[in-house]
Design a protein around this nucleic acid. Sequence first.
RNA 1: GGCGACGUGGCCGAGUGGUUUAGGCACGGGUCUGCAAAACCCGCUACACCGGUUCGACUCCGGUCGUCGCCUCCA
Length: 495
Amino acid sequence: MRLYDSLTQEKRPFTPRDGDHVTMYFCGPTVYNYIHLGNARPFVISMVAKRYFESLGYKVTLVENITDVDDRIIQKAIEQGRTSAEVAREFADAYIEDTDRLGLGRPDIEPYATEHMPEIIDLVEKLVAAGHAYQAGSDVYFGVETFEGYGGLSKQQTGEMRHGARITPGEDKADPLDFALWKGAKPGEPSWESPWGPGRPGWHIECSAMSLKYLGPGFDIHGGGRDLIFPHHENEIAQAEGALGGEFVRFWVHNGMLNTKDEKMSKSVGNIFMLREALKEYRPEVLIAYFVGSHYRSPMDFSRELLAEAGQQVGRLRNLFRTLDDYISGGGASSAPGAASPDQPPAASDEEASEAAAASVPAPSGDAELLAAAEARRASFDEALADDLNTAAALGEVFALSREANTALAAGTLSAIGASALRKRIGAMVHILGLDGAAQVADEVPTDVLEMAAQRYTARAARDFAEADRLRAAIVARGFEVRDSADGFKVVPGE
RNA sequence: GGCGACGUGGCCGAGUGGUUUAGGCACGGGUCUGCAAAACCCGCUACACCGGUUCGACUCCGGUCGUCGCCUCCA
């Protein structure tokens, strides 16, 4: 695989540090609010990357932090007259809940900053001992000039950065660029005991401490949104390498921003769409399809139109899986009146099933051809992902195979075994892209809706089209859709 | 101002120095169909602009214009 590294600004061949074990750290949220769609992007990307690496046979350890102590949390707590811990707890729980609903599983480790004070303090002490950090009052700062190469990730010169930089009143920094590793507690603020008195960590240090704890120095991939390059990741490098004296991270991976009408989706701009709100309107796999539909490094426009388009794409996949399932179960698109298909007597063997499915076609053995096509598509799919995780191109291969599959299914040239194998192959691709939801098409149709459909089938057979149309409308009103076929009908949820 | 990314057909979005329209959505026309849908087929169609390198560039180089991001809130 080749992976783009923001530090060197080039795609380089990626091989894990530890043989077959990939170590990844993605910056998770600071929990002072619900996460929005822009925050969801790196979560989705990290989970898809994990799945891709696993598909290659690697073992993956993905760490995604939850920063639960921070200025913004404290401010929110003050506004709401609550404790910082309460606010953090509420939004951390909400974060887990919301991302759970995406159905992508969870990172392997999700450490909380407040549960890693010993590691954080230890790292700060190391930096002080190494001469990279200094105490000023009850605060501890990182001395930027002590770290050669500061600005290397964000490609900035410290001299340039100093223009316009200010020292906030109350801070006693030696250099305006220096940043806080430890902040002495002010009255009412959450605090932990430390060699410098009670206080709390500055932003950045928790990520360095936790990534090093769980993944060790020189781990493979550190990721997050582009907007974290400076100062967050720049500072992480300074802290970690200042303390280690060696390489912190092998590949820096940054995803593009989500823009609304050419403006970044951001809480300060007020153009945000919360993930939990989005999930009320769209299936999880629709949101995921929207994300994987473009390369992770590209900025994306956010709009309802684009989500609707992703919805159409997911619908296309769902239809394919429905067709496959019907085909495999031997009933084809034909459901006997009065039931969806479970009552359709399954063929005694797969041989028979294939014959039944392809009854009207003389030679039902396009298996080899289509499975070869599937192999070819899978090869291109893997190739796309191997090129800096090009999910958009990979998704294109899924659709191309989709059409090939639909053609064969319509022609009835596959055996049930072949169709089943095909379903597995497409399912595997869809799984890597996080779109499993699109393959789960065992739709639950209420019995009364099913009855209406059966009645309609009867009416239609009797050429009572007025009644048939009335029932169709009634079914649609219930949120379902009837699809007729040559030998029956199918009820599916309205998309 | 500094740094970085990017400008592809009605829209989204991959990709490449000289096979092939990636793919999706939308639209038009078909096949199928009582209607409707699904599916398939056909059609529509591109590489911001100006130079340069080259036998040949959308793909490489330079410039112009435009857009976006970062420059201590930010995924």
